[in-house]
């Protein structure tokens, strides 16, 4: 009897409330499915790997507890990688910020026409358009012992030695850091420029009336107004630079003698050249923990701004 009543209603009518609440999830289902397959499962796996003896190679891996963590934390190459990564990341991020901010301020002028500044803006963004492999080849050519950089140094009298920038233990880390700064500052520049254009002109006028000079205006108005953008940029760049892989891998492969070994080249070699997948997973998990802390900070900050 109840069935007969239900059948007289249009099909799915009973499902109405369910569908109504289910609809957004239906639209989100491909996204959620991919997040589970490509994020949740892999993170679970990599954590699991770190507690087993050699996974992937070994068909029946055995639980070894914290043994892999002990090996990695005592590995002097891991220490070198952490140290190099900290240098590489901090110098890169500061370099990106300084160049990005300076170029954005240069472009945000009223002195030259919008057309002129527009052309400069295109040129300034260019390094960001190239893939890591191209930037690696480009700078390998520039930094060759017989390359243009050494030539310019000798012409200007700064240095006559034909320095092999990328194969010298002394200079290699600095050289890859420089390359990374060149490749990455446009992201800061464009974001900061958008931020600068959003600052109300009234603020500057009020400051000018109060007698603030350009430097005071910069530190009292520009920087505080840009603060939310700068925090986002620094957070994202910090994480992205930790895992800059292409440039270092193609130019130096972490060498010479681990002079440019960073966490990304260390994990990659440990996994795909030495086939120590479990040990590589430990390093990956350690960095994932660090990045998760940063990611939570970033997401909270972004959500708060919405």
């Amino acid at each position: 009897m109840r069935d007969a009543v239900a059948q007289r209603q249009p099909r799915f009518a009973r499902l109405g409330p369910v569908l109504k609440h289910g609809t957004p999830y239906a639209y989100l289902s491909p996204t959620l499915l991919l997040i589970i397959l490509l994020l949740v499962v892999p993170i679970f796996l990599v954590i699991k790997y770190s507690f087993y003896d050699n996974v992937i190679i070994n068909k029946n891996p055995v639980w070894v507890g914290l043994e892999n963590f002990r090996i990695i934390l005592r590995d002097s190459r891991f220490h070198t990688a952490v140290r190099n990564t900290l240098i590489f990341v901090s110098v890169s991020v500061v370099g990106h910020l300084v160049l990005g901010l300076s170029f954005a301020l240069l472009l945000n002028n009223r002195v030259f026409s919008a057309r002129t500044t527009g052309i400069f803006r295109v040129v300034y963004v260019l390094p960001w358009m190239f893939t890591g492999a191209v930037i690696a080849i480009l700078w390998q050519m520039m930094l060759n012992p017989n390359g243009i950089v050494n030539y310019l140094l000798s012409v200007t009298g700064l240095s006559d030695a034909k320095i092999a920038w990328l194969s010298s233990r002394k200079y290699a880390l600095g050289a890859v850091t420089f390359m990374n700064i060149w490749a990455g500052y446009p992201f800061f520049m464009v974001s900061i420029l958008a931020g600068l254009q959003g600052i109300s002109e009234d603020l500057y006028e009020a400051a000018a009336i109060d007698g603030a000079n350009a430097v005071q205006q910069f530190f009292r108005i520009t920087i505080p107004q840009l603060k939310p953008i700068l925090i986002s940029l620094l957070t994202l760049d910090f994480v992205w630079t930790i895992f800059q892989f292409d440039l270092i891998w193609i130019t130096t492969g972490g060498g010479p003698l681990y002079a440019t070994e960073t966490l990304s080249t260390y994990i990659y070699k440990q996994a795909f050249s030495r086939f120590q997948y479990s040990q590589a997973s430990v390093a990956a998990v350690l960095v994932l923990i660090a990045c998760t802390v940063i990611a939570i900070f970033y997401a909270r900050q972004q959500v708060a701004r919405d």
């Binding site: 997040i35 499962v41 892999p42 796996l45 990599v46 892989f245 994990i267 990611a295 970033y298 997401a299």
Partner: peptide, 21 residues
């Protein structure tokens, strides 16, 4: 928030499980 946070997940940490999968 999860979608925003994914942007801060380093690709190389996922590379090993991806390889296995």
């Amino acid at each position: 928030a999860l979608i925003i946070a994914i942007q801060a997940v380093p690709p190389i940490t996922l590379l090993i499980p991806y390889m296995a999968l």
